[in-house]
């Protein structure tokens, strides 16, 4: 009799199973969504900062006339950046995750899965972002830089007040892209035991041996998250583009 009730309670269709699993493991899926978002957002923001720093260093020009300290220090910094970008772009994120997590724990620097996940995401993002920032800087007409230098602005101020604001605007779509990629790439972090969405689906699907339905549930969650963020970024991009018209300052019209 008891088993009869149990059988009756179980859904028969795929959709039915999806709802059943989503409801039964709602707290696990919710927690997974939270961790996925947390790692993606924190990792991406820190990665962007790192990417800007590396991108700016790579764009830095070292002249023959510069003093010896600047030359040596600058060149070492540039070399480090080149190696870093190369290594992280040429290896898979899933492998980086394993190496960083197990490597750190093995060498006594104990690290929890979530911070390790953020570290992997930020290092990965930084490497790609550096290239994006470099391209963004290169896309700005040389005249903008010369205009600023010619009025006595230092190269550093020129970068921060003139070049970067324009480059930033140009690379917003690419930054949005990177964030969406990260949101989805957090799924590989289950290999280092991060309790994110993929891990939740794996666990939920295992109990009833309903993997197909379980993964469909998280596919929907990933889709909704990305969809919402995508709209948000499009909105920001539109806002950043600014208005198409301007107000004439009539108080300065000559015939007044």
């Amino acid at each position: 009799m008891a088993s009869g009730i149990l059988l009756q309670a179980l859904p028969e269709t795929t959709i039915g199973w999806m709802f059943f699993l989503a409801k039964k493991y709602s707290s696990m899926f919710l927690q997974g969504t939270g961790i996925t978002l947390y790692i993606a957002i924190v990792g991406t923001i820190l990665g962007f900062i790192l990417g800007y720093v590396v991108g700016i260093v790579q764009d830095m020009k070292i002249n023959k006339e510069d003093n010896i300290i600047k030359k040596i220090f600058g060149n070492i910094l540039k070399e480090i950046c080149i190696v870093y970008v190369e290594v992280f772009r040429d290896t898979p994120m899933i492998v980086q995750a394993m190496i960083i997590y197990y490597g750190m724990n093995q060498s006594g620097l104990s690290i929890d899965p979530v911070p390790a996940g953020i570290l992997v995401t930020l290092l990965n993002t930084g490497a790609y972002m550096a290239e994006t920032v470099r391209a963004g800087i290169k896309s700005i007409d040389i005249g903008q830089r010369e205009g600023a230098l010619a009025m006595g602005m230092s190269p550093m101020k020129t970068m921060f007040h003139i070049i970067l604001p324009q480059a930033f605007k140009n690379i917003i779509p690419e930054m949005a892209n990177t964030f969406l990629t990260n949101l989805k790439m957090t799924s590989v972090l289950n290999v280092i035991l991060v309790q994110e969405l993929f891990m939740a689906a794996k666990t939920a699907g295992g109990t009833y041996y309903k993997y197909f339905e379980s993964y469909l549930v998280i596919a929907v969650i990933y889709f909704v998250l990305c969809f919402v963020f995508n709209r948000l970024f499009l909105f920001i991009e539109k806002r950043m583009a600014g208005k198409n018209d301007y107000v004439l300052a009539v108080e300065y019209m000559e015939n007044q």
Partner: peptide, 24 residues
């Protein structure tokens, strides 16, 4: 010396063929 160059440039202005107004 960058600092000296900056100071010199602030006294010797330049107007370009392509204007080079800051687009932002």
């Amino acid at each position: 010396v960058q600092r000296e160059i900056n100071e010199y440039r602030s006294k010797v202005g330049m107007v370009f063929q392509s204007f080079n107004l800051f687009n932002n």
